[in-house]
Computed example of a mutant assay.
Amino acid sequence: MIKTAKGKRPVYLENPQIDKLLAIVMALTGEVSVLHERLDTIERLLEAKDILSPTEIEAYQPDAKVIKEREEWRGEYITRVLRVVQEELETLKES
Results as ranks from 00 to 15, higher is better:
residue 27 A to G: 14
residue 68 K to C: 04
residue 36 H to F: 15
residue 29 T to G: 10
residue 5 A to M: 11
residue 63 D to R: 01
residue 74 R to W: 14
residue 11 V to I: 06
residue 18 I to H: 03
residue 93 K to G: 04
residue 69 E to G: 00
residue 35 L to Q: 13
residue 51 I to M: 12
residue 23 A to V: 07
residue 11 V to D: 04
residue 73 W to H: 10
residue 87 E to W: 01
residue 79 T to Y: 05
residue 78 I to K: 15
residue 47 E to Q: 08
residue 66 V to Y: 09
residue 34 V to W: 04
residue 22 L to V: 14
residue 49 K to F: 02
residue 40 D to N: 12
residue 9 R to P: 02
residue 28 L to N: 07
residue 75 G to E: 09
residue 27 A to T: 09
residue 61 Q to D: 07
residue 4 T to V: 15
residue 62 P to Y: 01
residue 27 A to I: 00
residue 72 E to K: 15
residue 39 L to N: 13
residue 64 A to D: 13
residue 30 G to H: 04
residue 32 V to N: 12
residue 87 E to V: 09
residue 17 Q to W: 12
residue 38 R to H: 02
residue 60 Y to M: 08
residue 64 A to V: 11
residue 34 V to A: 06
residue 73 W to L: 12
residue 35 L to K: 09
residue 9 R to N: 08
residue 94 E to V: 07
residue 79 T to F: 07
residue 61 Q to R: 13
residue 51 I to H: 04
residue 3 K to I: 13
residue 70 R to K: 11
residue 54 P to R: 05
residue 25 V to L: 15
residue 3 K to G: 15
residue 48 A to S: 14
residue 44 R to L: 08
residue 61 Q to N: 07
residue 45 L to P: 00
residue 45 L to T: 05
residue 1 M to D: 07
residue 71 E to C: 05
residue 38 R to D: 02
residue 70 R to D: 12
residue 1 M to T: 08
residue 16 P to W: 00
residue 20 K to N: 12
residue 26 M to D: 13
residue 48 A to G: 03
residue 79 T to M: 06
residue 43 E to H: 05
residue 55 T to G: 13
residue 68 K to I: 08
residue 5 A to H: 14
residue 43 E to C: 01
residue 75 G to Y: 09
residue 9 R to V: 07
residue 63 D to C: 01
residue 94 E to K: 13
residue 33 S to I: 01
residue 19 D to P: 02
residue 60 Y to R: 09
residue 52 L to E: 07
residue 54 P to Q: 07
residue 38 R to Q: 05
residue 37 E to N: 02
residue 63 D to A: 00
residue 94 E to A: 15
residue 95 S to G: 11
residue 19 D to A: 03
residue 49 K to Q: 15
residue 59 A to R: 05
residue 5 A to W: 07
residue 21 L to E: 08
residue 77 Y to C: 06
residue 84 V to P: 03
